[in-house]
């Protein structure tokens, strides 16, 4: 951080830039910040999800149209996610009464149950902890953030969308499939991968490995670019 400050003129920074604040934000591969929060299902701690994958996501506000389409979409993928040992947990800076009223409204107007808890983060504690507030967009609404946290509490993926753009929940399911496949088979997944597609064999780290893989039966375009079927 210090080197960045030294090499970057303050005049070139956007007025909302707060470099110091980014130091404590979640990082891929690091433990997710712990919290206890009031939700529509009672008080919940992050540690309650130990042993389960968690998709923690924020939305700007209850009773807004894009967020409503997102909640319908998240509710639609909830059964598929549960089959993958994944739970959903929503968040916004609204009260629990507002969340309950909105969920009931969605049930009334769209016939859809919201099966997952929603954090009522009125004091912005969790939103601040996870960097869900983007002052350049709004100081009072959380952006459309997604944090994928694995069963050991490690942040495995993060997605940030602006207020104006609803998320693609199919991509979240695809991301979970990719992460779980990576964990199970120690492989990587190529662009636009879906379950059933070939996967990437991690590049070799030694000359010996590079030579060995040419005889391992992989589908290799070159020594560093090999795929296989799982």
């Amino acid at each position: 951080m210090a080197s960045l400050l030294e090499s970057t003129s303050q005049e070139t920074l956007h007025p909302t830039a707060t470099l110091a604040a980014t130091a404590s934000l979640p990082r891929l591969g690091s433990p997710a910040p712990d919290f206890e929060a009031v939700t529509t299902h009672g008080k919940i701690r992050l540690s309650d999800y130990q042993g389960t994958w968690l998709v923690l996501f924020s939305h700007p506000a209850d009773f807004t149209p894009v967020c409503t389409t997102e909640f319908l979409a998240f509710a639609a993928i909830a059964p598929d996610l549960r089959k993958r040992n994944v739970e959903l947990l929503g968040l916004s800076i609204d009260s629990v009464s507002s969340h309950i009223a909105w969920a009931r409204n969605i049930k009334d107007k769209f016939g859809v149950d919201i099966p997952f808890p929603i954090i009522a983060d009125s004091n912005k504690e969790v939103a601040t902890l996870y960097g869900m507030l983007m002052p350049g967009e709004s100081k009072t609404e959380t952006s459309r953030c997604v944090f994928v946290i694995d069963p050991t509490g490690i942040v495995r993926a993060m997605i940030y969308y602006p207020l104006t753009t609803g998320r693609n929940t199919d991509e979240i399911v695809r991301l979970i499939d990719a992460l779980q496949t990576t964990d199970k088979h120690a492989i990587a997944t190529p662009a636009n991968w879906h379950p059933g597609d070939k996967v990437i064999v991690p590049p070799p780290s030694t000359m010996e490995d590079a030579e060995a893989r040419t005889k391992a039966g992989y589908e290799c375009t070159d020594w560093y670019f090999c795929k296989k079927t799982i």
Binding site: D48, G51, T52, E87
Partner: peptide, 10 residues
């Protein structure tokens, strides 16, 4: 769900 049981028992 396990998270609900943990929170509920607490």
């Amino acid at each position: 769900p396990l998270f609900r049981v943990r929170a509920g028992l607490r």
